[in-house]
Design a protein around this nucleic acid. Structure first.
Length: 823
RNA sequence: GCCCCCGUAGUCCAAUGGCAGAGACAGAGGACUUAAAAUCCUUCCAGUAUCGGUUCGAGUCCGAUCGGGGGCACCA
């Protein structure tokens, strides 16, 4: 590469090749160790899944994370900005089946590819801290944590109707079912009765909800909303109903105990044990059984259809309403869920739409007990849910909804018939998976001892070799076929026992990985407490909103569990969160089938790394989607070479005294540094770049038609531009830095100190309004007093004319910007 | 059905309740050039979805409507 070419024009390809090996040697992003006295920052990007090479979405996410990490480094912080790979999971396994090879091969190949691409993309990662979740050194601690949760009763097995994906041939967590479809393969999810492992996240529902107050203003409001919604806490009451011919009463859950007198029937979930019991031995048992079969056959999609007619079976049994002794018929229906509340409800058709729909379909009575002023629900078919005066309700008559709830709760409690209760939409986290490429569950099943955890000394429990195993999904874990692996000895009694053949949901892997980076090679513990206390919690987490519920909720859960285990001193893992938008094309998500896929490698080839990074960051607010059709990478190239050209025009020597420079350009420089810093800290990266563009324009003007290239202010401005650009366009910035006579790496050059004296303007143009309309302007000193300012405004000829001798009603003066005279 | 967010030039987007325009894309014109590219300069374009309110003053706050996006969804 000749010198001539280097200086002829900005050549991004040449510059990229030039600096990478130099940076490899300098390692500017190695986070400081114990003796580093700089204040610490932990900036974390969500780690990628190695599904192939990096794509446009990665390019955006990592560009944004890089701006933040590089900014704090420039600001003098000891920044840890690590990366790793979320490497277990189905895509690898599916690829392995297709190619008939070990999923390890595909996974580690892709990791190598992505790693090389990240290096070329100039990500400011600390490469010493890398790990992959499929490394036995990592998943060993997954297993260790599983046994700790097991010890505490937070990992348990139960029989339950679980979400089953017929495509992936595995169970799914609630969180992985989106609108009745498998989030991965879009197959219609069905129900299957299975014995599976769960984590008891519901024990933490209240804390997961209440601790969110601490994240207010630091996490996107949207994410907090989604989590609140997902946890779905509801306040109500449990009420006992005596059942004719049954010794035990049945407890129902209601949020409207004030409407107890309006109950006209009871409904139990058709797929609950209670329903089966109530139907058993009655004349309707056959009818009930065939109804149950029908329900089981229905997919989630059918269940979720909004206009689905109500169905059910009259069990010909009766419950006694505890408040008035009325006999209520008991129905079994699928509109009541077996796993929410108690699986049984009192139906108040007048004031609940679902109950009303059911009552209409089954010709059951409707009784109004709250006068809301709306029309009769039995006429309109619309249940009235608002507040009003209670009627037809004995002692509650005349009360408001809130008062009635308080009164009836008190009464029920006194009579021992009920008490206030809470319920949650959140269910326990189903963690078993019937697939190969994941962490083996470290449990041995012994006929004598039951479930026995694999002892710490035997961890990691390695995945059996994929060779010889049929990985094709068949509803049972492929591990079951590894007979030598499965058949083992009970760690407790040494008798013959069998290993659990399921693997863990990969979300277990990502629920604590951020704790591993500070001591990523630690062989004796999952994470080192001293390192954790230094670096954690994560100061800034950056990632997609797709993980708003799953990953972020699970991570918060794990953190709280580890806190309870006294392994951590904090209860929230991520202090601040930034959700970047998606990269789309012409308004819709990129996909091969849509034919609007933009290849990152092509874009990098055509415009260079810096221009792509700049385009991503400049396109708009980071949380908005980037529509690639709206951005102009060639515009970014143009701007970068414009900035680069400045560095060749500067003629003063490095180290020249800036204070002798031309003042107006100096002011522009210091204002840009100040404003850009503020913009970066408030995640308005696009605005920060606009400030740099302004300064580039001002510097260009100063060189061409102002103070000229010899002025120290021109050097000061150009160096500031290079440093600010280093956050988003590291190659261009480094090249500028060298041309300005400095040594690499600019990444650690430091953000120039802003001189507050240079932030004050000499003169400000003030606006003079009469009744809010602008009549004149005047130049004033920024330090002018309010009184002086007002007097000057009133003395303006335009104002004197407008006033015509009259006295203004009111004068609002906001020195030094505005005077509003009210007539 | 319930909840949340967002509507600013042709486009992407700025604007602590105080001059609607910071920045860019696209367009137009000019300088340089034999010409083109590149570069530099200049320039057109909206009154902030609609209606009402609060205020000396509203893109910004409040209410309603319309439009767009998102979340949850038979959770009693």
């Amino acid at each position: 590469m000749s010198i001539e070419r280097e200086h002829a024009a900005y050549d991004f390809a040449y510059v990229q090749e030039k600096w990478l090996p130099i940076w490899d040697k300098l390692e500017p992003f190695k986070s400081g160790r114990a003796d580093d006295s700089r204040p610490k920052k932990y900036v974390l990007d969500m780690f990628p899944y190695p599904s192939g090479d990096l794509h446009m979405g990665h390019a955006e996410a990592y560009a944004l994370g890089d701006v933040i990490a590089r900014y704090w480094i420039q600001k003098g912080f000891n920044v840890m900005h690590p990366i790793g790979w979320d490497a277990f999971g189905l895509p690898a396994e599916n690829a392995a089946i297709k190619r008939n090879e070990d999923p390890r091969i595909w996974t580690y190949e892709n990791i190598a590819t992505q790693k090389a691409s990240m290096r070329r993309y100039a990500c400011s990662f600390d490469w010493d801290r890398v790990f992959n979740t499929c490394d036995p050194e990592y998943y060993k601690w997954n297993q260790w944590l599983f046994t700790k949760l097991h010890e505490r009763g937070l990992a348990y097995r139960k029989d339950s109707a679980v979400n089953w994906c017929p495509g992936c041939q595995t169970v799914l967590a609630n969180e992985q079912v989106v609108a009745g479809l498998c989030e991965r393969c879009d197959s219609a999810v069905t129900k299957k009765k299975l014995n599976q492992w769960y984590f008891k996240i519901t024990d933490y529902a209240d804390r997961l909800l209440d601790d969110m107050s601490e994240l207010e203003g630091k996490w996107p409001e949207k994410v907090l909303m989604m989590q609140r919604n997902w946890i779905g806490r509801s306040q109500g009451a449990n009420v006992q109903f005596v059942i004719e011919g049954r010794t035990e009463p049945v407890t129902i859950y209601t949020t409207r105990p004030d409407t107890l007198y309006g109950a006209t029937f009871m409904v139990v979930a058709a797929d609950s044990a209670l329903a089966a019991e109530l139907a058993h031995g009655t004349p309707v048992e056959a009818e009930f059984n065939s109804y149950l079969e029908q329900i089981k056959a229905a997919s989630d999609i059918d269940r979720l259809a909004t206009d689905r007619p109500k169905s059910g079976v009259d069990l010909k049994r009766f419950a006694i309403n505890p408040v008035n002794g009325e006999k209520l018929p008991i129905w079994a229906s699928d509109y009541v869920l077996a796993d929410y509340g108690t699986g049984a409800i009192m139906a108040v058709p007048a004031h609940d739409q679902r109950d009303l729909d059911f009552a209409k379909a089954m010709k059951l009575p409707v009784r109004v007990v709250v006068e809301t002023g709306e029309e009769d629900p039995s006429e309109t078919g619309i249940a009235t849910t608002g507040d009003g005066k209670i009627v037809n309700s004995g002692a509650l008559n005349g009360l408001s909804k809130a008062d009635a709830i308080a009164a009836i709760n008190k009464q029920l409690e006194a009579d021992g018939l009920g008490k206030s209760a809470r319920n949650y939409r959140l269910r326990d986290w189903l963690v078993s998976r019937q697939r190969y490429w994941g962490t083996p569950i470290p449990i041995v099943h012994c006929e004598k001892c039951g479930e026995v955890a694999v002892p710490d000394s035997e961890l990691p429990l390695l995945l059996p070799d994929a060779k010889g195993l049929d990985l094709k999904p068949k509803g049972q874990s492929p591990l079951a076929a590894a007979t030598e692996w499965v058949n083992t000895k009970c760690p407790k009694c040494a008798g013959p026992a069998m290993r659990d053949t399921d693997t863990m949901d990969t979300f277990v892997d990502s629920s604590w990985y951020y704790l591993r980076y500070p001591s990523s090679t630690n062989a004796t513990e999952p994470f080192n407490r001293a390192e954790i206390d230094t670096w954690l919690p994560v100061d800034q987490y950056v990632g997609g909103v797709t993980h708003a519920i799953l990953h972020l909720l699970y991570s918060r859960f794990f953190t709280k569990v580890l806190y309870d285990m006294k392994m951590l001193s904090f209860t929230e893992p991520f202090t601040r969160l930034l959700n970047q938008g998606m990269v789309v094309m012409d308004g819709s998500a990129m996909s091969k089938s849509r034919g609007n896929l933009v290849r990152l490698s092509d874009e990098l080839e055509n415009h260079g790394v810096d221009a792509i990074r700049l385009s991503m960051v400049f396109s708009g607010p980071p949380e908005d989607d980037v529509d690639w059709a709206d951005v102009s990478p060639s515009g970014s190239v143009k701007f970068l070479s414009r900035a680069w050209r400045l560095s060749g025009d500067v003629t003063s020597a490095p180290g020249v005294d800036f204070t002798t420079g031309e003042v107006s350009l100096r002011k522009a420089t210091h204002k840009a540094l100040n404003d850009a810093a503020f913009a970066v800290e408030s995640f308005r990266f696009n605005v920060a770049i606009a400030r740099v563009m302004e300064l580039v324009n001002a510097t260009r003007k100063a060189i061409d038609s102002g103070c000229g290239p010899t002025d120290p202010a021109v050097r000061e401005a150009t160096e500031a531009i290079a440093i600010m650009l280093s956050l988003v366009a590291p190659f261009t910035a480094e090249e500028m830095w060298e041309r300005l006579g400095h040594k690499p790496a600019i990444a650690t050059a430091g953000w120039p100190v802003v001189d507050p004296a240079l932030l004050v303007a000499d003169e400000v143009e003030a606006v003079i309004q009469i009744n809010g309309k602008i009549v004149d302007r005047m130049n004033v000193s920024p330090s002018i007093s309010e009184a002086e300012f007002e007097a000057a405004a009133l003395a303006l000829p335009a104002v004197v004319v407008a006033l015509a001798g009259s006295t203004p009603k009111k004068v609002i003066a906001r020195a030094p910007k505005l005077v509003n005279i009210v007539l």
